[in-house]
Computed example of a mutant assay.
Amino acid sequence: MTHAGPKIGAAAGALLLILIARHPANATLPPSSIAAPLGADAANPAAERTCLTTAIYYESAHEPEAGQEAVARVILNRTRQRDYPATICGVVWQGHARATGCQFSFTCDGSLRRRPVADLWDKAEQVARRMLALDRQGQGAEAEPLLNYHADYVAPGWRLGLMRKQKIGRHIFYARKAEGRAATRDMPTADAAAPPVAEPSIWGINLAAAASDRQAIGGGKGL
């Protein structure tokens, strides 16, 4: 007769200790499912943090921290541009309901079927919190804001109309040339108490206008 019980118990205990070490009690765990928030829910702070975390994770989970911060900067910078949605969730999920034209490919290419790895999600969430805090303090404004990027193994044609700024990890980031800069949206100051007001979002509203404005900047690995 064999007695496998103690060995199995020891192995399970060791695995539990590893999981506890990797995922402390205060770590942020991934949601069980991820989908675009609806209506006014897209503008509340918790939803915006989740949207930013989601984009950081699916776009740059394995990138250096500086690369994750740059992805977050692109999203936050777009909320200030009049030709993008005014909310973080609106920017992240822009065009996701169309067959083509999603701004961030993970929102329409099936990537969301892969549940995030817990420790990588927690890291992305920490980056999102930090970047949101800096943005609220008014430290996000840039004279030549990063608005686009693509992976270094592709060469989209739209990059020729932009100004290359920096390469971080596998991503190359761009700003608009002076002649191509659109009007910026007036943003609240760091001391403003009023909550953000969402513009008509992309979920079933004004999709044609969004599409015509963004034809030159497609989804996929080019943002």
Results as ranks from 00 to 15, higher is better:
Trp93Tyr: 04
Ala11Leu: 09
Ala133Lys: 11
Ala216Gly: 14
Pro156Met: 01
Ala216Cys: 10
Ile205Ser: 07
Tyr58Pro: 03
Asn77Ala: 09
Gly13Ala: 15
Tyr149Ala: 14
Pro200Asp: 09
Gly219Arg: 07
Pro6Cys: 01
Cys89Leu: 02
Pro188Phe: 02
Thr54Met: 00
Gln126Cys: 04
Gly9Phe: 01
Ala72Gln: 02
Leu16His: 11
Ala86Trp: 03
Leu207Trp: 04
Lys221Leu: 15
Arg113Asp: 13
Arg129Ala: 13
Gly138Phe: 01
Ser60Ile: 05
Gly222Lys: 03
Asp135Gln: 10
Leu223Met: 11
Ala190Val: 00
Ala43Asp: 10
Ala66Met: 05
Ala118Cys: 13
Arg185Glu: 00
Ala178Leu: 09
His23Asn: 15
Leu52Asn: 05
Ile18Cys: 12
Met187Gln: 03
Asp119Trp: 15
Asp109Cys: 15
Gln94Lys: 10
Arg214Gln: 15
Gly39Pro: 07
Gly219Glu: 05
Gly90Ser: 00
Asp135Lys: 01
Met163Ser: 14
Ala55Thr: 11
Asp152Tyr: 06
Ala155Asn: 12
Arg164Ile: 01
Val127Pro: 00
Asn206Thr: 11
Arg49Val: 04
Ile205Leu: 15
Ala10Lys: 08
Arg80Asn: 00
Leu146His: 06
Ala35Ile: 04
Phe106Arg: 03
Ile56Lys: 00
Ala35Lys: 08
Leu16Gly: 14
Gln126Lys: 11
Val71Thr: 01
Pro145Ser: 12
Gly138Ser: 02
Arg82Leu: 11
Ile172Asp: 01
Ile217Arg: 11
Ala155Lys: 10
Ile88Met: 03
Gln139Val: 08
Pro145Asn: 10
Arg22Glu: 15
Glu65Val: 15
